[in-house]
Amino acid sequence: MTWGVVFFPGSNCDRDCVHVLRSVMGYPVVEVWHEDRSLDGIDALVLPGGFSYGDYLRSGAIAATAPVMRAVGELAARGAPVLGICNGFQILTEAGLLPGTLLHNASLRFRCHPAWVRVESDRTPFTAGLRPGMVLRMPVAHGEGAYFAPPAEVAALEEAGRVVFRYCDPLGRVTPEANPNGSVAGIAGVASDAGNVVGLMPHPERASEGLLGSIDGRRLFESVVGALVGAG
């Protein structure tokens, strides 16, 4: 299977994602330019972290209007796995491909540190190979990562099993202390209605090699491969 990683001006985890998918995991990777209009030949797509277009208007707001985003929408509509990491998550919410929005951290500060998330749903290609309740260690690094949606919408997401990851402590307990940014209900990641589009604030690509302290992030990418082959 072939992965695509989108390069927006100001993305800065683009090369990291390519490194993990191509060099660590051995998949073919297409580097997609923000002005590209076609995603032909790409089976699964990553929107990486960073500060696309400087994040000067509102994080992800400008990138959501980039030429490539029409093709991203079409790919998502076809059911292909699309993962937004950090700024990529913000872009997907701004583009309307994922519900909710990401506000400034409750501390009003950028925070970068290891974090733990609990898998809440295995009904996405990125978690199909995982079990609900599993705890993954992946770092966070963001200033605007507080997930927010109106209470009714959050309830609907919970009901539909679209909350995919929740911040927790290393033992899987969801506590206020384990929530790094003030996200509502400790939500770290959500899925689209169909489940194939997922966004999360933690960085799986920074947790994909033992040398860097965790390989839990790799399981998200491995999971997609299993799901696609399974659906094959």
């Binding site: 990291d16 972290g49 970068c112 690094a141 690509e205």
Partner: peptide
């Protein structure tokens, strides 16, 4: 130092 992204670049 937690205000600095110290991990980007893997």
């Amino acid at each position: 130092y937690e205000q600095y992204d110290h991990m980007v670049g893997v």
